[in-house]
Design a binder for these strands. Structure first.
Length: 901
RNA sequence: GGGAGAUUAGCUCAGCUGGUUCAGAGCAUCUGCCUUACAAGCAGAGGGUCACUGGUUCGAACCCAGUAUCUCCCA
């Protein structure tokens, strides 16, 4: 026998992954004889490399998919990647820059050539890495959100929604990313708390007394005088608080609340913008908060959403002083060409020198930043394309509310509802090149048509303009591309070609998909919108269950990130601990929706578990069979059969509730505790003694069942052992073996509870061994005072073997010089000549007696409570009575033991 | 500022419609073991006023109210 003592995953993982692929086990096609099970991968960005979040997410998907496959479903896991418009473009731009090439020097086509090169080179890395993890995707179905077919789907949807009036073009305040130089959606904005400065600026009142007041005076005078001076000052100046002094050149008004008595004298007046001197009106609006700042608000419609709305209401002009890159343009008149933040510093100085800066205060505010580039977002008015959300959101909310789609854990339902009820129109245009170009074509007269391709656009344009001579060259396609999510929201449909060919066999069979596994942070970005698209284009939800994973954090609770350097390299982990070890390690601590505090110890635990399994297998391979021997382990076999059945039922329940961690723990304990520590110890023959054929047959059968249950979690080692156990047919792989479906064992509950009692006796003996320092193998005997002699008779062999007893006898009284324990209602004694400490033994018994009496008393108290007896359900009452009986017999046993000492 | 969720052993978490076990698991800890499958192991043990304060109930970790702390979402 030469099976390695330690399992080495590296030796087998690549081999089995290759065989599975060769056998085509991961391939799925419509099969009317089988129920479909499908999952679409959340397509990783082509910019990414595998990180711990992918490991968790894809492990969970693989567990679900592998189990479904074993359950006899046509399991289809569709992989693919996402073109990640802004992130990829940024990477390519940076790479070109390193080579000394500027994007602006390239034509669109030239740039895209570079981008595609980049995608071909790096875009598939993550998918290759997922194979190392064991992901059982149908690789033939690998899709890319920007491939021709999926691009066509995107364009079709754009045209269709435009024709339905769901997509429109309009000037709106958008979130502008000056670094990416593109608009981004509301959902891509991250708010960060920050301490900013509040600048108090003096706007000179036109026609007021034009004498500057020195700030120093204000600071040195007393409070009363200060007030007096301040009020004098307000007749000359209006004090305005702003966190963005660099935007004053874009001011078109200042606003005060009409109810604000401090400013009544300013109604109908004008003020001058500091430094610039331009006159702007004082407008009245109840929107202005009187208790914020000074109660005066500068109105800058081009650079603030609220101001923009005020501007519309009061019919104010719009002055946009910012370039796309965040520098000031000539409309600002001052500081032209300088960056907005540089200007902020400079203007504060200049204002100070001009005596127009009253003071600067710290101020807690929220900084809006770009999820993609980290740049501070600039609210910017621009002409963009929008997709209406209200109608689609309403329907997408309904299906989650009525559980047609279930979120796991359900706590996310609340979040989802709030978002769907407050959703705003979706800005879908991006000022980038990498992505699907918006299929809108502008005519020379400035009007436009929307069409699937140039030919159709030309046709429409001729019709619309009445000019039959219009040529393609007269048309100019919109320069912008679509938001990446505008392609990913179609993913569950487009991967099955559901737009090109809405009635094809694949989509009819695999759609709706079953489960989606993703991160809560893209619940709205992606999940909600897939639901919208599904309902819009298939009239059916895209999936039934959404399992939301947590964020992988380090053991200090910090999010894993490259910058912190606190993330292990997943491939190193796999190389060190094996894919199976890593998979189980990740799952050990990942209840649905909770963040996972990654700890290498858990991966170690996973690795140890594979080794445990390996050694259980090794044990069974070391046995020699003697066909002459009678079946020696009937009790053990019978018990484990019942245990297995009960556990499989429990396991299926965990899966049904998407409790992956609990499911894993259930099998873990079944294998380690019940199978290895108990069952194998029961059936294991003495050293070099042979085993009987019947016991071996059952044991191998059980091991095979365990391998099946483990396979979704640990595909590699289980497949390896499966094939080591015996010669298998060419198609006979564990990967496609049927999932155990066990019928309830007659009297199973009774079998389990009887064995529990027997094992409790074993534990009692072992405890005494430990206490007395006797070692595990010193031969002992056991005397029992019990009403259940049958138990001892039935389990005699097991008890003696596991507790290393030479004999178990019945007795009426405690033997002299023995240590006792109580189990169930019975009393047990281990005679120990010369090793008894009478005092200690007495103390121990008394302690237990006191405790048991206390317990009995609480039970009695309950039972003597009339209201309890009246109100409690019969089974509860019955249990309490049982407790009383058990406690009383235990007390009697203890009392006798004490008396016998 | 508005909303949601959480608080149970040293750590990470279960605990279903209140009632099997005067609270469970894994890890960690402690004790003893290199016992012929496994020291990546075996056997055993200790460890909790279920955040706090009230209330409802025969009975509360669980239901209700308030307080404190934390997390997330939205502004």
């Amino acid at each position: 026998m030469s099976i390695a003592k330690t399992y080495t995953p590296a030796d087998v993982e690549a081999k089995w992954y290759q065989r599975w692929q060769e056998q085509g086990f991961f391939k799925a096609k419509p099969n009317p004889r089988k129920p479909a099970y499908s999952v679409v991968i959340p397509p990783p960005n082509v910019t990414g490399v595998l990180h711990m979040g992918h490991m968790l997410n894809n492990t969970i998907q693989d567990v679900l998919v592998r189990r479904a496959r074993m359950q006899g479903k046509e399991a289809c896991w569709v992989p693919g990647t996402d073109h990640a418009s802004i992130a990829t473009e940024a990477k390519v731009v940076a790479l070109l820059k390193e080579q000394g090439i500027e994007k602006r020097d390239l034509s669109r086509e030239e740039f895209l050539t570079h981008a595609w090169d980049w995608k071909e080179k790096y875009g598939g890395i993550i998918l290759e890495q997922l194979k190392k993890l064991g992901a059982s995707c149908d690789w033939d179905r690998t899709r890319f959100t920007m491939e021709p077919e999926l691009t066509e789907a995107v364009l079709r949807v754009f045209v269709d929604l435009y024709q339905k009036g769901q997509i429109y073009r309009g000037i709106r305040m958008v979130n502008w990313d000056p670094q990416g130089r593109t608009a981004i959606s509301d959902e891509e904005v991250i708010a960060k708390d920050t301490v900013a400065k509040m600048y108090y600026l003096r706007y000179e009142v036109v026609g007021g007394e034009n004498s500057a007041v020195k700030t120093e005076n204000l600071e040195t005078e007393g409070a009363e005088q200060h007030e007096a001076q301040l009020s004098a000052l307000t007749s000359k100046f209006l004090l305005i608080a702003t966190s963005r002094p660099e935007t004053i050149m874009a001011d078109v008004a200042v606003a005060v609340n009409p109810n604000d008595e401090r400013y009544t004298h300013l109604h109908g007046q004008k003020v001058r913008i500091p430094l610039l001197g331009r006159e702007i009106p004082v407008i009245l609006d109840e929107y202005v908060a009187m208790d914020f700042g000074t109660g005066g608000l500068k109105v800058t419609p081009a650079h603030d959403l609220n101001d923009y709305e005020l501007g519309i209401k009061h019919n104010l002009p719009v002055i946009d002083i910012l370039n796309d890159d965040g520098t000031l343009n000539e409309k600002a008149q001052l500081y032209v060409g300088q960056d907005r933040f540089a200007v902020r510093k400079q203007i504060a100085k200049d204002l100070q020198e001009a005596g127009l800066l009253e003071k600067i205060e710290d101020y807690n505010s929220v900084l809006q930043t770009s999820e993609r580039t980290g740049a501070v977002i600039e609210p910017k008015l621009s002409l963009q394309w929008f997709c209406k959300m209200d109608h689609m959101a309403k329907k997408a909310l309904e299906v989650v509310e009525n559980d047609e789609i279930k979120l796991h854990p359900p706590k996310f339902k609340n979040m989802y509802r709030v978002w769907m009820e407050n959703v705003r129109d979706w800005c879908i245009s991006r000022q980038l090149w990498w992505g699907q170009r918006i299929p809108a074509y502008y005519l020379p007269d400035g009007s436009f048509v929307v069409a699937l391709n140039q030919e159709q656009a030309l046709e429409q344009a001729r019709e619309q303009s009445g000019n039959a001579n219009l040529q393609l060259t007269d048309l100019r396609q919109d320069e912008d591309v679509l938001d990446t999510w505008f392609s990913s929201w179609l993913w569950p449909i487009s991967v099955f070609d559901g737009f090109k060919d809405p009635d094809n066999a694949d989509i009819n069979y695999f759609y709706p998909t079953d489960d989606l596994v993703t991160a809560p942070e893209i619940l709205f970005f992606w999940v909600a919108r897939m639901i919208m698209a599904g309902l819009e284009y298939r009239k059916e939800v895209p999936f039934r269950n959404v399992y939301l994973t947590g964020i992988v954090r380090d053991d200090q609770g910090r999010k894993m990130s490259k910058q912190l350097g606190n993330s292990p390299d997943p491939l190193d982990l796999i190389a060190t601990y094996g894919a199976d070890g890593v998979r189980t390690g990740m799952l050990f601590s990942s209840p649905a929706g909770n963040d996972l505090l990654f700890d290498i110890k858990l991966v170690e635990q996973g690795r140890n578990f594979t080794n445990k399994l390996w050694n259980a297998f090794r044990l069974t391979q070391g046995w020699e069979v003697n066909a002459e021997l009678p079946f020696a382990s009937a009790k053990a076999v019978e018990w484990f059969g019942a245990k297995l059945q009960a556990t499989v039922a429990e396991l299926d329940e965990h899966f049904a509730k998407f409790r992956m961690s609990d499911a894993l723990m259930t099998v873990y304990k079944l294998v380690w505790d019940d199978f290895c520590s108990v069952y194998l110890e029961m059936v294991k023959p003495a050293y070099q003694a042979p085993i009987d054929a019947e016991t071996l047959k059952h044991t191998i059968g059980y091991l095979e069942t365990l391998l099946k249950l483990l396979h979704p979690f640990m595909p590699f080692i289980t497949e390896e052992i499966w094939h080591e156990l015996k010669e298998r047919g060419p198609k006979e792989y564990l990967c496609v073996a049927p999932w155990p479906k066990l019928a309830p064992v007659a009297g199973g509950a009774e079998l389990l509870s009887r064995m529990d009692k027997a094992l409790d006796i074993v534990a009692g003996v072992r405890n005494i061994r430990n206490q007395k320092g006797l070692g595990p193998n010193k031969p002992l005997t056991l005397a029992a005072k019990t009403d259940d002699a049958q138990l001892l008779q039935d389990y005699d062999g097991i008890i003696r073997k596991l507790a290393a007893l030479t004999e178990v006898t019945l007795t009426d009284a405690a033997p002299a010089a023995s240590v006792g324990f109580v189990s169930g209602g019975s009393e047990f004694f281990v005679p120990l000549e010369g090793q008894i400490d009478l005092g200690a033994e007495k103390a121990r018994l008394e302690k237990e007696l006191e405790y048991t009496r206390g317990f009995r008393d609480t039970v009695l108290k309950k039972l003597s409570n009339e209201k309890f007896v009246q109100n409690a359900k019969p089974d509860v009452l019955e249990r309490e009575r049982q407790k009383q009986t058990d406690a009383e017999s235990k007390i009697a046993a203890l009392e006798q033991s004490l008396a016998a000492l």
